[in-house]
Nucleic acid binder design. Structure first.
Length: 594
RNA sequence: GGGGGUGUAGCUCAGUUGGUUAGAGCGAUCGCCUGUCACGCGAUAGGUCGAGGGUUCGAGUCCCUUCACUCCCGCCA
């Protein structure tokens, strides 16, 4: 017999009628009627109402206990009368008549209430995370996280994957995000880096012949935070497969995502066969490589319209002459929207740093015409052409952006979200997955004009690898793909380049000579030289999957002990200074800044 | 590194064009109450209005500086 409890706070029902039981938990809420006291006892499993009357010798004592005190209650299960049944609780048909109780853990005055739906400042929540985590919603999010991870592990094993751990102390990599560095005591002046992802290790596991690997892998990147990006660390479902093509990986991941999302959410999965969209197409139609396919708005290129003689919108025409492009978003049947709606969008665009969005509505009396500030600049013919290109009807409106390609893409991508939200076009009760495929292998750095890897230097280029044209590197596409859900990038993956000679050639394009590659990626290059299987993989972000399943917009709501935006742990007081002895051992000197 | 928002009681917030002693709800403390489940009723305590400086007869309110939290841009192969 357990010393503290015979049952938990979520399991007593009419089946335990008249039984003598014991419960332990936190005092969630008291309702004190003076001569009769109701006390809700809470633990991980639920809430049970306990009741005590003033005839009891300990009545005055229990009346004084503060909320969140941990107590053990011994008592008898009694049925509630019909009128007093609480249907909100699993245990709502019974209550426990307290025979005796014992205080197990006292509490000081609470810095935040536990029993409340109010929102609290992040500072206080993170400092007292252990209290915050007692609160219902986040408590359940964390339990959901545990269940999802267990389920994924199980599914991966069923799919024939083996789970392995890879080193946490590894080497710094020249590509990618900023590394977290760890000084080495035994090797003065040298540093380990925490892995940004187990990228090289998982490829080495394939070379080692294990065929299918997965890991719920911690990844460390020293980059600034966002709502969906914790500073410091996050988790990926890292997986890699041998002897596969892109489609084989898609098949595994689609199967896994559908089973996870069906098991843990009631929301509808819009496309069970995830649509594949090329990088080029998504940048045109959605302005981003992480499109939210729940949003029906589509971007169209209208640059040619502004080269016509019967269009007199001179501001845009001049810009187009100098090489700018024009793209637009059609909104269906918005002719009756007030002027404030359109001006609001334009004003919002200016706040986002764009030069604004021009707009007009397509109307028709004797002939088609544009109504709105710039509508008069378009001839009926040119309007017909716009309607043809963008599938617009009379009564629809159009928002136009003009500028450099990257600027237009960015503002219209944001505008798609903004306008769809304003017009309530997004169905929140659904998941829309898609694959983004055919990423370019290289891109041009906007500032330096140098050729750089656009994603992963280890990706396999597409085409006949025996005679790739390295003189036009920007035209080379890679077997590189992303999986996106509801506008959130869940993961990048690729078929890897397992041919050292080819890798040297690609690195040379990006400005790394053979010597540098041998030095920086020695482990990798060396391994690929001893019989490497063709292989590829992907690494969906666990935290973002849980966010989607829990319907949360902020990653801290699904992370047990997150850091704040400045990468500080307010509860554990990290990072912190270390003493001189530690520094000396590590051969480190701290430069004092005034 | 840059831009926006917020900062008033333990917690969540209100506080008018600058004007007397800065308020409410929850929580705490004390008292009343035998069927509540956000129990109800009454009282009490609790404030460096984030910090510093300035303008003014007078600043929670206006100005400057600064700090903290947060959202976004940059960054995130």
């Amino acid at each position: 017999m357990n010393k503290y409890r015979s049952h938990n706070c979520g399991e007593l029902t009419i089946n335990e009628k008249d039984k003598k039981i014991s419960l332990s938990g936190w005092i969630n809420k008291k309702r004190d009627h003076g001569n009769l006291l109701f006390l809700d006892l809470r633990d991980n499993y639920g809430i049970t109402q306990c009741v005590i009357e003033n005839s009891h010798s300990q009545f005055k004592e229990i009346e004084k206990l503060a909320l969140e005190t941990v107590i053990k209650v011994e008592g008898k299960v009694i049925l509630r009368s019909k009128e007093t049944i609480n249907k909100e609780l699993n245990t709502g048909e019974i209550e426990v008549s307290i025979v005796s109780f014992e205080v197990l853990g006292k509490t000081k005055e609470l810095p935040l209430p536990i029993f409340s739906d109010q929102e609290y400042s992040e500072e206080i929540r993170l400092k007292y995370r252990f209290l915050d985590l007692r609160r219902k919603k986040i408590h359940h999010n964390i339990i959901l996280r545990s269940k999802v991870i267990s389920f994924i592990r199980n599914e991966m094993q069923k799919l024939g994957f083996l789970e392995f751990q890879t080193p946490i102390l590894t080497s710094s990599s020249p590509e990618g995000a900023r590394d977290f560095l760890v000084p080495s005591r035994l090797n003065p002046g040298k540093f380990y880096a925490l892995p940004q992802a187990p990228q090289q290790f998982k490829q080495l596991i394939m070379v080692s012949g294990f065929d299918r690997y997965f890991q719920i892998a911690p990844c460390f990147r020293d980059e600034d935070a966002r709502a969906d990006r914790s500073p410091g660390e996050f988790y990926q479902l890292d997986l890699e497969m041998s002897f596969v093509e892109q489609e084989d990986i898609f098949e595994v991941v689609e199967k896994l995502m559908i089973s996870v999302f069906k098991k843990f959410s009631n929301k509808k999965i819009l496309y069970e066969k995830f649509p594949k969209i090329t990088f080029e197409e998504t940048m045109l139609k959605y302005g981003t490589d992480k499109p939210d396919l729940r949003n029906p708005l589509i971007i169209n290129d209208l640059t040619e319209i502004f080269k016509r003689k019967d269009v007199s919108f001179d501001i845009f025409k001049k810009l187009v002459n100098k090489g700018s492009i024009v793209r637009g978003i059609i909104t269906k049947n918005t002719k009756d929207k007030p002027r404030s709606f359109f001006d609001g969008i334009d004003k919002w665009a200016k706040e986002q740093g764009a030069s604004g969005l021009a707009y007009f509505t397509i109307e028709k009396d004797s002939e088609i015409k544009g109504k709105g500030p710039v509508g008069k600049f378009f001839s009926p013919d040119s309007l017909s052409e716009i309607m043809k290109i963008s599938n617009a009807d009379v009564g629809d409106s159009i928002f136009l952006a003009c500028g450099k390609k990257s600027e237009v893409e960015k503002i219209l991508s944001l505008a798609r979200d903004k306008i769809a939200n304003e017009l309530k076009l997004i169905n929140n009760d659904s998941f829309a997955f898609c694959w983004i495929v055919d990423y370019p292998m290289f891109e041009e750095d906007e500032k330096t004009k140098r050729i750089i890897f656009s994603h992963n230097p280890f990706s396999m280029p597409q085409g006949n690898i025996k005679n790739l044209d390295f003189s036009k590197p920007l035209e080379i596409k890679a077997y590189q793909y992303d999986i996106v859900c509801n506008g959130i990038e869940l993961s990048s993956g690729a078929i890897r380049n397992h041919i050292p000679e080819l890798m040297y050639k690609l690195f040379l394009v990006a400005g790394y000579d053979k010597k540098t590659v041998d030095l920086k990626f020695s482990g990798m290059i060396n391994a690929l030289s001893f019989g490497a299987p063709p292989h590829g993989g992907i690494a969906p972000g666990i935290d973002r999957i849980i966010m989607l399943l829990a319907g949360e917009k902020n990653i801290r709501e699904v992370t047990m002990f997150p850091m704040n935006q400045n990468a500080q742990d307010l509860m554990m007081n990290a990072p912190s200074e270390v003493n001189d002895e530690q520094l000396k051992e590590l051969n480190l000197l701290i430069k004092k800044n005034k």
